[in-house]
């Protein structure tokens, strides 16, 4: 049996990734996902760990700088033969670099000197720093909307837009992989998006709860004051 059939039982034992986004409760906890991923070979498990270590924000500390990120990109790409996985990593690094550049420019900063990111676009960004979308709107069609959301100071909207773009990229790559290792990696990366998505929802819910609580307390105070008068 070829590698394309390497993880049939593992993939079919996972709920459809699209269901992750419609479920009220996560259909698969990280604990259960990790248990299913124990079917991976040691080499594939290590490759997946390196890719997640690179792409998951939670694995970065506040003090980590661009050099840490570049070292992780190098470690993840080292010996990685799959063109699909390499493309996923490169696209994600490009995406983060462009958004970082947008944020730096919004703060009035210029392009950082030297090779400040492992992205292929670093030089292009520096050369087109003053263009609203770095002359990348054809190559990255999602960029104008991201720039607008940043300009509108809508961080939650920007995060959801970026998660949506990332999810679509994974969908595109996943269309050619069904039961192989790439399919498993794509599933795990989608699961990570779902997890961040649900957390951003939780933050929105917390804000809404605070607003409602403030309103309730304000009306309570008014009633209380009227009663006291």
């Amino acid at each position: 049996m070829s590698d394309r059939d390497a993880y049939i039982a593992l993939v079919t034992s996972l709920p459809r990734p699209e269901r992750l986004f419609f479920a009220k409760q996560p259909p698969l906890s990280r604990l259960r996902l990790d248990r299913r991923l124990s079917d991976l070979t040691p080499d594939d498990r290590e490759t997946l760990r390196r890719i997640e270590h690179l792409l998951s924000w939670s694995s970065y500390g506040m003090e980590d700088d661009a050099a840490v990120s570049a070292a992780r990109v190098e470690a993840a790409l080292d010996g990685l033969e799959s063109t699909t996985l390499r493309a996923i990593i490169e696209e994600r690094v490009d995406l983060r670099t462009v958004v970082a550049a947008l944020r730096m420019r919004a703060k009035g900063e210029g392009p950082p000197p030297g090779k400040w990111s492992a992205s292929r676009l670093t030089r292009h960004l520096a050369e087109n720093w003053n263009d609203p979308v770095f002359r990348l709107d054809r190559r990255l069609p999602w960029l104008p909307q991201a720039a607008k959301l940043l300009e509108d100071r809508d961080p939650l909207g920007l995060e959801r837009h970026m998660l949506d773009v990332t999810f679509r990229q994974l969908q595109r790559h996943g269309a050619r992989h069904f039961f192989d290792f790439e399919a498993v990696v794509i599933y795990v990366l989608k699961w990570n998006i779902f997890e961040r998505w649900s957390r951003s929802d939780a933050r929105a819910a917390a804000r809404r709860f605070e607003a409602l609580a403030d309103e309730a307390l304000a009306s309570f105070d008014e009633e209380d004051l009227r009663g006291a008068a």
Partner: peptide
Amino acid sequence: IIGCAIAGQASIGAMVE
């Protein structure tokens, strides 16, 4: 052999979910 093994593995995985 190969066809049944491929589909059989899928059915076992699906039974878990």
